[in-house]
Simulated assay, not measured.
Amino acid sequence: MSIDTLGLREQKKRETRQAISDHATQLFLVRGFDRTTIADIAAAARVAKMTVTNYFPRKEDLALDHHEEFVAGLARVVADRPPGESALEAVRREYLAAVERRDPVIGFTGPAFARMIADSPTLVARLRDLHEQRELALAAQLTAEAEAAGGDPVVARAVAAQLAAADRLLFRDLHERMLAALPSAGDQKTPRQDGRETDQGRGDDDSDGDSDDDELIAKALDGTARRVFGLLEPAIGAYAVR
């Protein structure tokens, strides 16, 4: 089999995976996560049910498609920090950059998606589990560094817990701001086939409201993040400086 053939096959797999994810998201937003079945998703994406589960072993993974990146995120940021930077500064720097780019991994998923998560006990529980995995990954990274430098692994785990607690607080803050940005009953939004939302009774090009909401949310979250990480500075600001 040629390299070109392998490349085309991988591209086809990525396209199939993305198509399944896109159709699943549309169904979740319209019907709700718990009322949507794998069979519904397979029919919408025009694939077999087994194809859906091959790409997404857990139904929750269809909604939380960035879960692997989310779990590894804090540990990766700390592992990749440059010389002279502490663990706290690395996390703060990356978080503020994620706010600036409206990164869906930290929760910039839109009000309708936030409501879909909030309405599903299954997804709420899965998010809690992912946050725990995220903390464990960070603790493993800091512990390995501490042991390599002859430091105390207990302290490393304590620092990881503080950073993870700040991370959870900011995620919850963003989630609540997204929910608060939901339109009123008279100004509902409906998901389009391409995953965007449009106001009922308004043209597709009228998206200034969404942009304004995102800008206000990002500005508020930036301020909150700076305060939260600032409060940690006296305790762990000098910890794990590379």
Score class of each variant (00 low, 15 high):
D214K: 05
A165E: 14
A146E: 02
A181P: 06
D205Y: 13
M178L: 14
V124S: 04
A137C: 06
E100P: 00
R226I: 00
A137V: 00
A161C: 00
A87H: 09
D34C: 05
Q11R: 15
V30E: 14
E89A: 15
V159R: 10
G230D: 03
D212W: 07
E69M: 13
Q133H: 13
D152F: 02
A148M: 07
F171T: 14
D210V: 13
Y239I: 03
Q11H: 11
A180D: 13
L74T: 02
T37W: 02
F28A: 06
M50L: 06
R177T: 01
T109R: 15
D65T: 15
E60F: 00
T143L: 04
A220S: 15
V159M: 01
I117R: 12
D187Q: 14
G7E: 14
L6E: 15
V71E: 06
A137D: 08
D152M: 01
M116S: 11
A185P: 01
Q26K: 12
I38F: 07
F70C: 00
A181Y: 05
K59H: 02
L179S: 02
L8Y: 10
M1H: 06
V159P: 04
I38C: 04
R76C: 07
P57W: 05
L27F: 04
A225G: 09
M50W: 07
T16E: 13
A240Q: 01
E145K: 00
F33Q: 09
A90L: 03
L127P: 02
A114V: 00
L138A: 01
R101Y: 02
D129K: 14
R172C: 02
V30W: 01
F56S: 04
A240L: 10
A42N: 08
I41V: 15
M1C: 02
E135A: 10
D187G: 08
A48I: 01
T224H: 08
H23W: 08
D129C: 09
D40S: 07
D80E: 14
A112Y: 09
R14N: 12
Q11Y: 12
D119A: 12
T109I: 15
R81L: 03
T53M: 11
D199W: 12
G32W: 09
Y95C: 05
R168C: 02
F33V: 10
Q141N: 01
A180N: 08
D206W: 04
D65E: 11
M1Y: 05
R81D: 05
T143K: 08
T25K: 10
D194C: 00
H67E: 13
A158M: 07
D222F: 06
A144F: 02
F171A: 15
A79S: 12
Q18L: 06
T198M: 10
L231T: 11
I20H: 02
L136S: 12
D199R: 15
P83A: 12
T5D: 11
Q200R: 13
A97E: 13
V99N: 12
R31D: 08
A45K: 03
L127Q: 12
L179T: 01
A97H: 09
F171N: 11
S2Y: 00
A63M: 14
A87D: 04
R172S: 14
A90D: 10
H131L: 11
F56N: 00
P153I: 07
D187H: 11
F113M: 14
A75D: 04
L127H: 07
R101W: 01
T5K: 09
I41Q: 03
I217G: 05
A181T: 00
E69P: 02
A118Q: 15
D205P: 00
S120I: 06
R31V: 04
D167G: 07
V52M: 03
